[in-house]
């Protein structure tokens, strides 16, 4: 196990030395043949869903993990993205490549609207306000005839490039997967940038961040808008996936809980954790489909259990593993140095 980890980190470092983007390219190449390994169409569909969920969870991590704003209404932004894309495609016949930016723009505006209350609200206030927002969006979609109300919005055209139409799950994977990689890369880039540092300053202590010259309101708003961009992207990708059908049932409390579970289980503020959480939860949710009645109960128990006993999530465990490894390595290094010094001193004496 240790040797394996060492080898993979070493090869990653080697790739990074060639070009900083090399590891991402390598993972792209590695992910390319994945649908060929799938046993049936359903598993390819799951792969697509996992990619969309990774985009969503990564976006949620920006506002929740980096910036420390508790929002539970992320699923509403996802719904807004999906419905904007769907309505543009169905009612106006706009092709996917225009629907996607439009959906992202509209969701970004909605994200800004959610973000504005965060100037004045913190913690639980914000959580409840966003919960109310999510609930209102779902109810609004359910009762508005223009949006298909309770019967859903169907007939959303699949995307195409020239004559190449992404009409089945296998082809769609090659659309979703690159978007997912770009999204994950972008979130790492944000975390490393000055904006990311400002987010973390706001998270740790808004007051001292403001005292050191971080415009707290601006960065809170930026965090909300960025995560909304992710939600809009995920929503649009979801809406255009075969069979091109969105329904209010896709954006209910269940999805809200699943999304929250992904981020919490993976570790809040940990990008890799969020990704692992998204993969794990999607697969587990699928495996336990037969126990549908108990699923939410189980998810709730896991959320509470994670918060109580493993507050840093899976990502925290992985982090600790690497940190302790580095710590052990550093200790061995100093011990070796001391031994060498002692040996040198001994030879000097004699």
């Amino acid at each position: 196990m240790n040797a394996l980890v060492q080898k993979s980190t070493a090869s990653l470092d080697a790739l990074k030395r060639i070009h900083p983007l090399m590891p991402w390219f390598a993972s792209f190449v590695l992910l390319l043949p994945l649908p060929l390994l799938a046993l049936n169409d359903y598993q390819i569909y799951l792969l697509n869903v996992i990619c969309i969920m990774i985009i969503l969870a990564t976006g949620l991590n920006i506002v929740k993990g980096f910036c420390g704003q508790v929002t539970v209404g992320h699923v509403a932004l996802y719904a807004i993205g999906a419905y904007t894309s769907g309505v543009l495609s169905v009612k106006f016949g706009v092709p996917f490549w225009f629907c996607l930016p439009a959906a992202i723009a509209v969701t970004m505006l909605a994200g800004a609207l959610v973000g504005i209350p965060s100037f004045r609200l913190e913690g639980a206030y914000l959580a409840l306000a966003t919960l109310g927002f999510a609930q209102s969006v779902e109810i609004y979609i359910r009762v508005t005839n223009y949006l298909g109300s309770a019967s859903g919005l169907g007939g959303i055209a699949p995307p195409s490039i020239g004559n190449f139409v992404f009409y089945d799950y296998f082809r769609y994977y090659y659309l979703v997967m690159p978007f997912m990689l770009i999204a994950v890369y972008a979130s790492f880039a944000i975390l490393r940038s000055a904006t990311g540092r400002a987010f973390m300053a706001v998270r740790e202590d808004a007051l001292s961040a403001a005292a050191t010259g971080v415009n707290v309101r601006r960065y809170k708003l930026i965090a909300f808008m960025l995560s909304a961009v992710y939600a809009g992207l995920a929503g649009s990708l979801f809406a255009h996936m075969v069979p091109g059908y969105v329904h209010p049932n896709n954006f209910t409390v269940i999805e809200m809980v699943t999304l929250l579970l992904m981020v919490v289980l993976g570790g809040i503020g940990n990008i890799w954790g969020g990704i692992i959480g998204a993969i794990l939860v999607t697969i587990i949710a699928d495996l336990t489909r037969d126990f549908y009645f108990y699923q939410l109960l189980m998810f709730g128990l896991v959320i509470v259990g994670t918060v109580l006993f493993m507050p840093k999530g899976i990502g925290g465990i992985i982090d600790r593993y690497f940190v302790s490894k580095r710590f052990v390595a550093a200790r061995e290094k100093t011990a070796e140095q001391k031994r060498a010094e002692a040996a040198a001193a001994k030879s000097g004496e004699s």
Binding site: K64, G65, G68, V70, V72, E122, G123, A124, A127, R203, E204, D205, V253, V257, L260, V264, I268, G269, F293, Y294, L296, L297, F299, G300, L301, V302, I303, V304, V307, L308, P311
Partner: peptide
């Protein structure tokens, strides 16, 4: 506090709500 550590309280409450709701449902 209501930093990321205190976020636990909110998430725990939310999880609790889901649990209670589903117990009642069962």
């Amino acid at each position: 506090g209501y930093t990321v550590a205190g976020m636990g309280m909110i998430i725990c409450g939310f999880g609790m709500a889901i649990i209670l709701q589903n117990i009642a449902f069962l």
